[in-house]
């Protein structure tokens, strides 16, 4: 009974941080791509291409881990520990 309480507590902590862990890198990636578009692409300035590449790296890198993480969270919530 006591152990189950501990599990519930740590899972709650995890779920509490999930939106921040998933959404914040996504926002940073989108902001970088937006900056490339507004200050680089639309005025034909190639100096901002680095922001585009970095934005894509951030988005792809995070999606790779976010999908299995959210899947594991869903699986865990179904088990109702």
């Amino acid at each position: 009974m006591k152990k189950e309480k501990v599990y519930t507590k740590i899972i709650r902590t995890e779920i509490l941080f999930t939106p921040l862990l998933v959404v914040l890198p996504f926002i940073v990636g989108v902001l970088l791509i937006n900056d490339w578009y507004t200050r680089g692409f639309s005025v034909n300035n190639p100096a901002f291409n680095s922001e585009l590449i970095l934005g894509i790296i951030i988005l792809v890198g995070n999606i790779i881990f976010d999908i299995p993480f959210i899947k594991s969270l869903k699986a865990l919530s179904k088990k109702k520990i």
Binding site: P25, V28, L31, F65, S72, L76
Partner: peptide, 29 residues
């Protein structure tokens, strides 16, 4: 089984926590 599932979950949590660190690049913007 429950403990194994928690380990697996912590595994992905650690990975996502690592990937979250790129958010600090916002500092330069």
């Amino acid at each position: 089984k429950k403990i194994n599932s928690l380990d697996f979950d912590a595994h992905w949590y650690r990975r996502v926590f690592h990937a979250f660190g790129v958010s600090f690049l916002f500092y330069y913007m």
